[in-house]
Design a protein around this nucleic acid. Structure first.
Lengths: 327, 327
DNA sequence: GAATCACAGCGAAACGTTTCGCCGCAACCA
DNA sequence: TGGTTGCGGCGAAACGTTTCGCTGTGATTC
C-alpha cells in the first residue's frame, strides 16, 4: 500500500502539502494541487484510516451489539443502522452477544479497545458497572430497544407497555379470556413493561390476571416451545398466546404443529415483530409491530448527533407500535 | 483513556516492560510483572488497538460485504462468520451493498482504507478490476456464495448447478412438466449455474427447456412478484415455480395471495434457502437448502487460514445442498 | 530603499503501540 | 582479579497520519 510519503515524493512536495490537498484543509496552489492529485491517482493511494485514527482520535467506526443477528427484528435494526451510518461515512462493527453476560463484556472491551467513536447497545441484563463506566468515560452510547437499569443516556425505545396492552386488548376483543404471555427474562425492563401492559389490558377488561399465564423465555425458539408446553399443561390453558419475540413465537408454532393444535382456531398466536414474512405466510399470526428498521436509523442519528456534541442532554426516543390483526 | 505510558509511570517501569508483561512477549521478573499488572488494573488500562494496528500492521478486523443483511440467507451467513471470528479474536466490519456496483466500490475502498486483515465478499456482478487489484495486492480475500469471473482466490460455494438440478428433478417427480425458474441476474455465475441445473433436470426427464420459463430477478420481493406475473401471463403457464432467492419467493407468494392462487395445489413453489421458518409456516414450500451458517463459518476459517499463510494455493470449498420437500 | 506584510509550502512533533539493539550488573571461569 | 557470559530492563525508532508554527519569497507601504 502506498503511503502519503510516497505520494509526496512522486509529486515532489512535502507530506504536509499532500495532506492539505487531499483533505482540502489548506489552500494549495493549483499547480501543486494538480501534481499531488495526479501522483495520488497514479499510485492508487488510499489514506490509511488506522494512522489517521491514531492521530485524529476519531475512527469513524461505530460498534453495535445485538443478541442475535439472524433474528428478523435485529437484522432489520442492523439494516437501518447500516444504512444511516454509511450515508454519514461511518462503518459498522457488529457483534452478537446471544444475551450472554460474558460475551457482552468481552465485546464491550473489544469495542473500546478498537476506539469506536460510539456504540449502539442492545444488551440483555447486563454488565451495569461496565456500562456506567463507559458512560462516565464520555464514550457516546445509545441504547436500543432495551434501557439500562441505572445509567442515563440516549435511548431509542418502543412503547412496550402500551404495545403489549394494545395487543392483549385486541385479543380480548376477539373473545379471548385467558391469554398466555411468553416474555423475555424478567430482569429486563422491557419484559416488565410488557407484563405491565398485559396486566393493564386484562384489568381494563375486568379480567383477572392469572400470573401462571406468564412464561419467561430467553428469546430462543426452544424456550418458546417449552413455554407453550407449560401453558398447555395448566389446568385452564389459554386460548391465545402472545409470544413477545419472533423466535419464541416460531417455537410456539412448532410446538402447536407437533401437538396437532390448529392455529388460530384452537389456539391463537400473537407476536412482537415487524417481519414482512408474517404477511405472506400462514397461519395468520397477529402482531404488535415495532418499526425495527426505523429504530436502527434513529439510533444511528442519535449517536452521530452525540458524537458531534457530547454535551447534549440525554434524549429518549419512543416510537409507536401498531397492532396488526391477521386472520 | 489511560495509555501504556501512564501504566509505566505508575508501575515505575519503562514502557517496553509494560508491553512485555501485557503481551507476555518477553520474560519479566515476577516482581515487576506484579507491579505492572496491578497498575494496569488500577487504571483500567485497555490497549489501544488503533495504535497497535498501526505499529503491527494487523488490525484483527475482517470486512464482510453482503447484498442485504435482512435477508435470512445472508443473516445466517453473517451469524456463522461472526461466531467463528469472535472465537479467533477478530472483529467483523459489516457492509450491505444491495447489489449496487457503486456501493460495492465504495465499501471496498472503505475496507481497504480501514486496513482490514481480510475480506469476505459476497458481491454481485462487480468491480472486477478493483477485485483483481485487491487480489494482486495480497489482501486476503474469500468469495462467498458467488465466484468472481476472472480472478482466482479462495471460494466457499454450494453446488448450484447440482442443487438446482436436484430441486427441479424433485418437482418433475411430483408430476410437474412446466417449471418456471426465477433466478438472479444472468451476469452472475451463480445464476447461470442454476439455469444449467434447471436445463439438466429437464433434459434428464426428456422434457424440453422452454426459455420463456426463465425469469431474471434481482433478489428483491418486487422482482419476484413481477416474475410471477410474467410467468402466469405465458400462453402455457408453469405449474411450479422455483424462485432461487428467499425474497423473490416471498414476492411470488405474495402475488399468489393477491391473485387468489392456491399454493401448492394450483401452483407449487420451491425456493433456495435454509431459513428455519419454512418448517413452521404454511404454505408448504419445498426448498433447496444450502448450509448458510456453515458457509459463513467455513469462509471465516478460510480467511484466517490465508491470513496465517498468504502463500497457500487458492482453495475452493463446495458445500452440498439438500432438497427438502414439503407438503 | 528599508521595513512590513501576506501567504504558500514545509518541518517536526504527536498520536499509542511494538520491537530491536543496547546497557549494566551479577555470576562464572580461568 | 580481569574478562566473558547471560539476562532483565530500558531507550528509541518506527508505523502513517494530521497539525501547528516557522520560513522564505514576493508584494506593498512609507
Amino acid at each position: 500500500m502506498p503511503t502519503i510519503r510516497q505520494v509526496a515524493e512522486r509529486a515532489k512536495v512535502s507530506i504536509s502539502t499532500v495532506s492539505a490537498v487531499l483533505n482540502q484543509s489548506a489552500y494549495v496552489s493549483p499547480e501543486l494541487t494538480l501534481r499531488v492529485e495526479q501522483a495520488a491517482r497514479e499510485l492508487r493511494y488510499t489514506a490509511n484510516a488506522v494512522a489517521r485514527g491514531l492521530q485524529s482520535q476519531r475512527t469513524r467506526l461505530i460498534g453495535m451489539l445485538v443478541p442475535d443477528i439472524a433474528e428478523p427484528v435485529y437484522s432489520l435494526m442492523v439494516q437501518g443502522v447500516e444504512r444511516s451510518l454509511r450515508q454519514a461515512g461511518y462503518s459498522l462493527l457488529l457483534g452478537s452477544t446471544h444475551n450472554r453476560q460474558r460475551e457482552q463484556s468481552r465485546y464491550l472491551g473489544m469495542l473500546r479497545s478498537k476506539q469506536v467513536d460510539g456504540m449502539l447497545l442492545l444488551l440483555g441484563f447486563g454488565p451495569e458497572d461496565e456500562i456506567a463506566e463507559a458512560v462516565e468515560s464520555q464514550l457516546p452510547l445509545v441504547f436500543v430497544a432495551r434501557e439500562p437499569k441505572s445509567v442515563a443516556g440516549d435511548v431509542v425505545m418502543v412503547d412496550n407497555a402500551e404495545g403489549a396492552r394494545k395487543g392483549v386488548a385486541a385479543l380480548i376483543a376477539r373473545g379471548h379470556r385467558r391469554i398466555g404471555l411468553v416474555v423475555g427474562p424478567r430482569d429486563l425492563a422491557v419484559s416488565r413493561s410488557r407484563i405491565d401492559g398485559w396486566r393493564a389490558a386484562l384489568a381494563q377488561a375486568g379480567l383477572g390476571a392469572d400470573e401462571s399465564l406468564i412464561c419467561e423465555g430467553d428469546y430462543t425458539d426452544g424456550s418458546g416451545r417449552a413455554a407453550l408446553q407449560k401453558l398447555l399443561a395448566l389446568r385452564e390453558p389459554p386460548t391465545a398466546v402472545f409470544a413477545t419475540g419472533f423466535l419464541m413465537m416460531t417455537g410456539c408454532l412448532a410446538e402447536c404443529r407437533a401437538l396437532g393444535l390448529a392455529v388460530p382456531s384452537q389456539l391463537e398466536l400473537m407476536t412482537w415483530s415487524d417481519s414482512p414474512l408474517l404477511d405472506v405466510f400462514d397461519p395468520p399470526i397477529s402482531s404488535v409491530e415495532q418499526p425495527s428498521a426505523e429504530m436502527g436509523e434513529r439510533a444511528a442519528e442519535l449517536i452521530l448527533r452525540r458524537i458531534a456534541n457530547k454535551d447534549l442532554p440525554p434524549q429518549t426516543i419512543v416510537l409507536p407500535t401498531h397492532v396488526r390483526l391477521r386472520g
